[in-house]
C-alpha cells in the first residue's frame, strides 16, 4: 500500500504527528499537534515527497449545531412554508466530536503515483491563528482569504488578508456556527 508507506515515511520524519482518529474516508489523514509544525511538515511534503499540489484549504467549526439566527427568515407566517430546518436540528447530537475549536483541513496531492493526503490542525476559537502557506503554494493565497472571510481565522504572513467573497460591510464570519445575521439595508 502506497498510502501506508507514505504515512509511515512522514511519521518517521515527524514523530509528533499522529493518525487522525476520524480520518477522511479512503485517504491518509494526519493530525498536527500544534501550529508551529505546520510549515515544516508542508515544506517536507512538497520538497521531499513530491506533493507539489495543494488541493484544498478549508476549515470546520466544531462549536455545535448551526445557529438558526444565521439565516434570513420571512417574518410573516406563510401557510406553505416549512418549519425552519435549522431550528429542528438545533439540539446537539450524541457521538459528534463537538469542541471549542476550528479544524483547518489541508489536502495535498502529487501527480506522479497519484496520491492525496489530508492534514488537520486544530486552532482555538478565541483568536484563531495559523501560519500562511502562501509562500509555499501560491494557490493558498485565495483559499486562505476565503477561510478568513468565512471563518475569521487569521493567517500570519499572508500577503493580502482581506474579505474575498462577502460584502466588506458584512458583520461577522458567516460559516461560524454561532454566526447571527444582522439585518442590513438589503433585507428590509
Amino acid at each position: 500500500m502506497t498510502n501506508e508507506r507514505v504515512t509511515a515515511q512522514i511519521l518517521a520524519q515527524f514523530p509528533q504527528l499522529e493518525k487522525d482518529p476520524s480520518p477522511v474516508k479512503d485517504y491518509p489523514t494526519l493530525r498536527l499537534p500544534d501550529a508551529a509544525s505546520l510549515l515544516p511538515v508542508i515544506s517536507h511534503l512538497k520538497d521531499s515527497l513530491g506533493f507539489s499540489y495543494l488541493d484544498m484549504v478549508t476549515a470546520v467549526d466544531w462549536k455545535g449545531p448551526v445557529d438558526p439566527a444565521g439565516y434570513v427568515r420571512e417574518e410573516r407566517a406563510h401557510p406553505f412554508q416549512a418549519k425552519p430546518a435549522a431550528a429542528a436540528a438545533a439540539k446537539p447530537l450524541p457521538g459528534a466530536p463537538y469542541r471549542d475549536a476550528f479544524t483547518l483541513v489541508y489536502a495535498l496531492s502529487r501527480f506522479a503515483n497519484p496520491l492525496k493526503i489530508f492534514l488537520k490542525l486544530d486552532v482555538p476559537r478565541e483568536q484563531p491563528r495559523a501560519a500562511s502557506l502562501a509562500r509555499i503554494f501560491r494557490t493558498a493565497d485565495w483559499q486562505e482569504r476565503e477561510v478568513f472571510d468565512l471563518f475569521g481565522i487569521f493567517f500570519d504572513g499572508h500577503p493580502d488578508l482581506r474579505r474575498i467573497l462577502t460584502l466588506e460591510s458584512l458583520q461577522g464570519h458567516p460559516l461560524r456556527k454561532d454566526y447571527a445575521h444582522a439585518e442590513d439595508r438589503f433585507d428590509r
Binding site: S22, V24, K25, D26, D55, A107, K116
Partner: peptide, 9 residues
C-alpha cells in the same frame, strides 16, 4: 450518516 468525514473528487 454516522459521524465522519469524506472527500470525493
Amino acid at each position: 450518516p454516522a459521524p465522519g468525514e469524506s472527500y470525493a473528487h
